[in-house]
Amino acid sequence: MSNITELYDAILTGNHKKAVEITDTALKGGQDPKELVDKYMIPAMDEVGRRFEANEYFVPELLIAARAMKGALNLVRPLLLAQKVAPAGRVVIGTVKGDLHDIGKNLVAAMLEGGGFEIIDLGVDVSAEKFVAAIKEKGANVVCLSALLTTTMPGMKDIIKAIETAGARKQVKVMVGGAPVTKQYADQIGADGFSDNASGAVTEARRLLGVG
């Protein structure tokens, strides 16, 4: 019989099976789902993020940890919904039009999810119109744009303009990222946040929303 405190380690080491098992047992034993998330799962993902940022973890470790987290989260999520627990924020994320690179974007989405955010992932090759529609429809308060090509990065500027034109700019904080994107570029196009890695994206989102 596993101890609930082992959930933290199971996520940190990417042990999907164990993470799901512990969560399942704990919930059946009457454990409060919100406490499970706040006390074990989010701290575990924060530590994963810290290690990634410190270059101790790399893409493979981050992905398996995120997978373990997701497994556990899938059991908890319906209960949180039933309890009407509000997420830390509602994030629309996607890779911009003309670009299909999505590994970095997927990591950002996974880390944000692990950080307690609700994720609406629009996938790749996403047009400005689609971003705008999703922001409005889902009532998002953060939008994350990812671009990996020198040639598709300028599309981010157009998306920010489209959000403005649609009158939704006050509603969302815009975060941008991807290998060619820099802090200067983010500032230049009027984005609110930037990070060069998936863990920093969580810190940045929390800062922008004033949570955590």
Partner: peptide
């Protein structure tokens, strides 16, 4: 390769 759903898994495995 970008439209190959297997790419990400194989790629991430091969990073080690």
């Amino acid at each position: 390769l970008s439209s190959d759903p297997k790419f990400q898994d194989v790629y991430v495995d091969e990073m080690s």
